[in-house]
C-alpha cells in the first residue's frame, strides 16, 4: 500500500509543488489589496538599505521602503499583467485557431496563418517599444504587447490540435448528423483541445511574468510609484555590489513564481495526457 501512495505522490509531485508555489504568490498578491506589513509609498530614509531583520522581514530598499510589502504589491502587478495578456491570447487566438482549422487549406486558413507568422516577427519587446514610443510608457503597454504576442501562440497551438481532431471519424459522424462546422468546432473540437489550452495557458502565464519583469526593468512597463518586480531590479542594479539583497529577493520571487507555474503546467499535462508522461522526466 505504501508503495502505491508514494507512486501517487510522485505522479502528482510536479502539480503539488507547482500549485503550492503559484498559490503562495497569488495569495500574496490578493492579501496586498487588504494589508501589507508597511505602506509601499512610505519613504523612511533613516531605515534605508536594511538587510532582512525582525521588523523588515526582507529588508528595505534605498528609500527605506519595506521590500516584503513591495514584493506583495509587485506580485499583484506581475500577475495582473500576465493574466490579462494570456486572456487576450486565449480569447482572440483560440477562435482564430479553431476557424483556421475548420477551413483547412482555404484562403481564411492561409490568411490567419500568414498573419500569425507576421506577428511572430514582432517580439513583445518590439511591440512594447512601438507602443511606448507613440503612447508613452505604462503597465497597459505591457499588457497589450504581451497579449498581442500571445495571440499567434494560442492560434497556432489550437489549430495544430484541432486539425488532428478534424481527422477523426467522430467528426464525420457529426457532419452526417447535419451539424455545421461552427457547431462542430465548439461542440467537438474545443472540449478536446481544452486540456492543451489550459496547459499552454499556464506556460504562457509564466512567460508573461518573465516578459513583464523584462519590460518593467527597461522602463517600458509599470511606472513608479506602482511597484513591480522588474522595476525593483532596475533600481537595485546600481546598488547590487553593496546591497545584493535588493536584487536577490525580487529575482527569487520571479523565479519561484515562474517555476511554480511551469511545474503546475507540466503536472497537469502529465495527468491530462498519460502518453506524454513517459517522454518527460
Amino acid at each position: 500500500m505504501e508503495k502505491v501512495s508514494i507512486a501517487t505522490i510522485g505522479k502528482y509531485r510536479n502539480l503539488i509543488i507547482g500549485s503550492m508555489l503559484s498559490l503562495l504568490f497569488l495569495s500574496a498578491a490578493l492579501i496586498s489589496f487588504l494589508w501589507t506589513p508597511f505602506d509601499v509609498t512610505e519613504i523612511d530614509i533613516t531605515n534605508k538599505l536594511k538587510t532582512p531583520d525582525q521588523i523588515y522581514w526582507l529588508g528595505t530598499d534605498h528609500f527605506g521602503r519595506d521590500i516584503l510589502s513591495m514584493i506583495m504589491v509587485g506580485a499583484r502587478t506581475s500577475i495582473a499583467v500576465a493574466l490579462v495578456a494570456v486572456g487576450i491570447g486565449i480569447v482572440i487566438g483560440t477562435p482564430l485557431g479553431l476557424l483556421s482549422a475548420s477551413r483547412k487549406g482555404g484562403w481564411i486558413d492561409e490568411f490567419i496563418m500568414r498573419g500569425n507568422d507576421l506577428v511572430f516577427a514582432f517580439p513583445s519587446l518590439v511591440i512594447a517599444i512601438l507602443i511606448t514610443a507613440v503612447f508613452g510608457a505604462g503597465a497597459l503597454n505591457a499588457i497589450i504587447a504581451i497579449g498581442i504576442f500571445n495571440i499567434p501562440v494560442f492560434a497556432r497551438i489550437t489549430r495544430g490540435a484541432a486539425l488532428s481532431i478534424w481527422e477523426k471519424e467522430f467528426i464525420l459522424a457529426a457532419r452526417v448528423a447535419g451539424k455545421s462546422t461552427t457547431r462542430i468546432s465548439y461542440e467537438h473540437i474545443l472540449p478536446n483541445v481544452m486540456n492543451l489550452l489550459i496547459v499552454q495557458g499556464t506556460i504562457q502565464f509564466s512567460l508573461g511574468i518573465l516578459a513583464e519583469a523584462g519590460l518593467s526593468y527597461v522602463g517600458l512597463g509599470a511606472q513608479p510609484p506602482m511597484p513591480s518586480w522588474g522595476r525593483m531590479l532596475a533600481d537595485a542594479q546600481t546598488m547590487v555590489s553593496f546591497a545584493p539583497h535588493l536584487a536577490l529577493i525580487p529575482g527569487t520571487a520571479i523565479i519561484l513564481t515562474v517555476l511554480g507555474l511551469n511545474l503546475m503546467g507540466d503536472g497537469m499535462r502529465d495527468i491530462f495526457d498519460p502518453k506524454l508522461r513517459n517522454t518527460r522526466a
Binding site: 523584462g214 523565479i255 511551469n262 507540466d266
Partner: peptide
C-alpha cells in the same frame, strides 16, 4: 533527472537578473 531539474530552473530565471548576478 538532474538535467531536467536544472533546465526547469533555467527556464524560470529572467536573463537580465541572471546578468546582474553574474556581474556581482
Amino acid at each position: 533527472i538532474t538535467i531536467m531539474g536544472a533546465t526547469q530552473l533555467g527556464i524560470a530565471v529572467p536573463n537580465f537578473w541572471f546578468a546582474m548576478i553574474m556581474v556581482l
